[in-house]
Design a binder for these strands. Structure first.
Lengths: 201, 201, 201, 201
DNA sequence: CAGTAATCGAGACGGTACGTCCCGTCTTTAT
DNA sequence: ATAAAGACGGGACGTACCGTCTCGATTACTG
């Protein structure tokens, strides 16, 4: 994430960085990611496609990993549906997430970033904030459901998210299988049943 | 997995491949994997440690990825406990799995392999069989539980495994957090409740 | 021979190639050539000694052979003596050439390059221009001798050079024997006699 | 040169070496040499073409170089013509040699062997005896010429051979040019003139 | 309006891993 | 003991990518 002059800062001297270059680089990264996958993408190729130089890239992001994170972080966040009961809202939100994992570069990129994280703490932070952003809509739906009484009040929201997303990610990432709406519906139904039953634990 | 002469095959001519070399290579791979992580491991280093030549390695496995898969495929399978009720057996099995993911090279390697799979179908097969092997003990415990009546009879076993393993993998791999026995117990309890409640669905 | 911007060319964009690297690489090549001989020289060793990377080497010369040619092409040309009669000047020039063949890497490298030429036309050109440069001083001495009347006017200069150098090279390269000043003197005397006698042919 | 059981030796025990294999190997070597040149020829390729195994090759010749020498050593020696005066006999003999250098593998192989000799003394001996064999017919013609009085009696025969062969080899090997009968005639005439003139030296 | 400083595209640089190739040796079974 | 087949250790080759650096050319702010 490039530090940019905030409103009141003295506006650093010299030629300002080009927003156009930055956009072109991020676009090129996302496109090549979708086309070739993480490992096959080359910083040189990104530079060539963006019409930028490698110096311009590395001035903004310290490594290829960080560039990739920035590129996928630009994709739109999930929009939780306003209508329907809890089960339906959850299923719809998760389906959006699943589609996103299966039809955009993210699906191929996420494991690569996860693999790198072990040896790259800085990347871990960036990845964490990205993940948190992705999970937020699901949390919102859960909170609303609790407020409406569709779930017991004491539910651990993080735990519930793990229960809901984990199986889907397991199918898509680890097993490499496609996930359809039926599978998602079953997950949501079973997990909600379990959460309600274990409430008074 | 190098094809080896089956019992009745005519024993292909020429000097047979050395089992000792193969073992040394796989051992060296596993050790270096544990010590350095996937990305930092070098084929040259593996060859040096194994006292083998690179040609001997590449004769058996076409790429570094395949070699790594073969190395981790040798690790012992999970041993489901014979005692305890369903909940306890499941939790113990999953805890073994979690420990394995968190304290052996597998944790660092799996995402890298998953990331490669998209662009490498041959690797996908190897990974699938590996995954299946890892999941088997959990399936056994579930079947036994159903036989004892601790779970309704009609449960989809694959689905149940996804529900149980998914949240754990989500925590470890995607979130990069450690998983303790308490978390596993909660997952098992909630999922089992859900499965029982949704049985007649 | 890397193509370099000529005086009026628009100065190609990007970072220019480092002359310092180029010199270091050629120096290292010549030194290692002298120390180990052609076959034992390694591109990695050259890179290490020059403090350069292999990419920097291969950017300039497509193969090890071409690099070696460039390295030996830098050695100083023969300096024909200003004094003495034709016979003495020829003998001195040839003795310089013989010493050069016997005491520098060239002696070991030339046959290797000659051997490669058959299957490598690009190398043939480089070798031809190198050879021509080496023979020039001898041609100069012969022309001067003809001008002074020490040789008949109609002598074919290329032919005379072959007669003079051929026997020396035959001894050094093919027979692997050392050549001393006495042998050279005999060659020069005999060939000059023959050229004078066959003049009116 | 493989040690072979002499007539009266006790005929070493075990299966005798196959002469057919040896011939096939030498034929394959010569053919591949002609087709690809020395450097591009592989011992594996020779073995495959000869239907032999590498062990069979290395049991007979210690290195690739020695094998190559053995292969080219089988080619027929030059046959000096019985008729004609000295000049014509020399020219014919040299023309045979030139044709041999230009139209058989020898031309491409000789420089490679010469290049190797520096770092391989054992090869030097083999090469020397080969060279001597090639030069013998020329020596015979010279001796006969001296006996007939066409050359002065005191001529150094080795020296004369260097003068005659050197220029031809220079043209063919070093310059990479073709040599025709006219060139050879000029060399012979000029050298003979020179030898006669310098006789009383 | 001239000076200064950071930016830009281009591409060379050191380093390092990859996967291929070849040599000469060794280990099988078959003859 | 030798044969064919082919695996073995060793080591060089040439390629590719990363992240850094050096050019000349822009492009804004500053004095």
């Amino acid at each position: 994430m490039p530090p940019r002059a905030s409103g009141l800062s003295p506006r650093s001297r010299g030629r300002p960085r080009s927003q156009a270059s930055e956009d072109a680089i991020l676009d090129a990264t996302a496109e090549l990611l979708a086309a070739c996958g993480y490992r096959a993408v080359t910083v040189d190729a990104i530079a060539a496609r963006a019409g930028a130089s490698k110096a311009t890239i590395y001035r903004r992001w310290p490594t290829k990993e960080n560039l990739v994170i920035a590129a996928i972080a630009r994709s739109p966040v999930l929009v939780p549906p306003a209508r329907g009961d809890l089960t339906e809202q959850l299923a719809t939100t998760i389906a959006q997430f699943a589609r996103y994992m299966q039809e955009t570069p993210l699906g191929g990129v996420l494991p690569a970033l996860v693999a790198e994280r072990t040896h790259n703490p800085a990347l871990a932070d960036a990845l964490a904030s990205l993940t948190k952003l992705r999970r937020q809509p699901l949390a919102d739906v859960l909170m609303a459901g609790m407020a409406r009484g569709e779930l017991p009040a004491g539910i651990d929201c993080e735990f519930a998210q793990d229960l809901l997303i984990g199986p889907v990610l397991q199918r898509i990432m680890v097993m490499g299988q496609r996930v359809d709406r039926r599978f998602i519906n079953r997950v949501v139904r079973t997990v909600c049943s379990g959460l309600r039953a274990s409430a008074g634990r």
